[in-house]
Write a protein that binds this DNA or RNA. Structure first.
Lengths: 169, 169
DNA sequence: GTTTTCACTGGGCATTTTGTTCAGCAGATC
DNA sequence: GATCTGCTGAACAAAATGCCCAGTGAAAAC
């Protein structure tokens, strides 16, 4: 599964102005609507695009504090801990990792004081041995995908040059 | 900025089936289209909804390996390091944090071997003193927002009960 | 070298959705 | 009691979508 240049441009376009729709996207890319639609369908059914869910800002929801917690888990308690963390709304994300911790999770809270509550909630569970928390101060690079898409498209491009400007159609 | 129950339901609906559009959403929520539209506009302009960009799966792009790197930065080199990391496509996210590291970043790579290249690229920069990397094995809780939205809506509900089912209209 | 396959073009058409506006109504506020 | 605000239900033109088609050129298969 790779993406070519047109896929990349389409993704970029949608990432920057998601509301434009297929028709407008096809216009801007200079391709037929059917092409844009087919590409989009392929990207979606191929799993490259997971969906178009709204990106919600936790801060605007009243949760301006973000933190990352590294958790050390008691052997064999993994499943229980996962289930526990999944039940906490303030846990936005959970990964199991190699390295010095066993799990890494992203938390949000209403305030620094509230973060204490959340952390207690998270780590106050039997299977968790130890937790170390890093509070986020700044977010110089918010979650992004365009640069990677660009690179992926460029890489595929080297492998599969694609058609060279169909003269007519 | 808070959200009431209707806002919450709208967000949930859009999070689960983003393609439905305002009209269909209003139908499912049992409200007038104008209401759904107004709520959506308010959520968007109020910053609760950042956008509707496509969620791209890095794995499907050829980057199945995810890792988190904790970086220790030389005093006064923060800005340079930020700029450097921002220029690396494989850096999907970067935070400055309290705690034992100074920065935490999310990386992706084409393979474990490729991860070495990415890490070298990331940490091979003057301002970075030390880096420790945790490779993601599983992702039991993918980035999610619905549970938090639900809680936020419930909380606001307590504070502001909202209108109690307008009889007619 | 010839045939087949495939992606793209450009068009049409019915249906759906959007953008916008309007008057009327009810709860909350003053 | 008067005003403000948010919701309803409706209308309309404009736009987008879903779906169809034949034609074309490049690449792949034979």
């Amino acid at each position: 599964m790779g993406i070519d240049r047109l896929d990349g441009q389409l993704l970029e376009l949608l990432a920057e102005e998601p509301r434009i729709g297929v028709l407008e996207a096809s216009r801007r890319l200079g391709v037929a609507r059917g092409t844009a639609q087919a590409r989009l369908d392929r990207l979606t059914s191929g799993g490259v695009i997971r969906g178009f869910g709204p990106e919600v800002d936790p801060a605007a929801l009243g949760y301006p504090v973000t933190a990352f917690a590294t958790l050390e888990i008691k052997q064999g308690q993994g499943a229980d801990v996962r289930a526990h963390l999944a039940s906490v709304p303030e846990v936005l994300e959970l990964h199991t990792t190699t390295g010095m911790g066993d799990m890494l999770c992203r938390l949000v809270a209403r305030s620094n004081a509230d973060l204490q509550r959340v952390i207690d909630l998270v780590v106050g569970f039997d299977g968790i041995v130890r937790a170390s928390t890093a509070i986020v101060m700044e977010n110089p690079v918010p979650l992004r995908i365009v640069p990677l898409v660009r690179q992926a498209a460029r890489d595929s491009d080297t492998v599969r040059p694609g058609r060279t400007t169909p003269t007519t159609g």
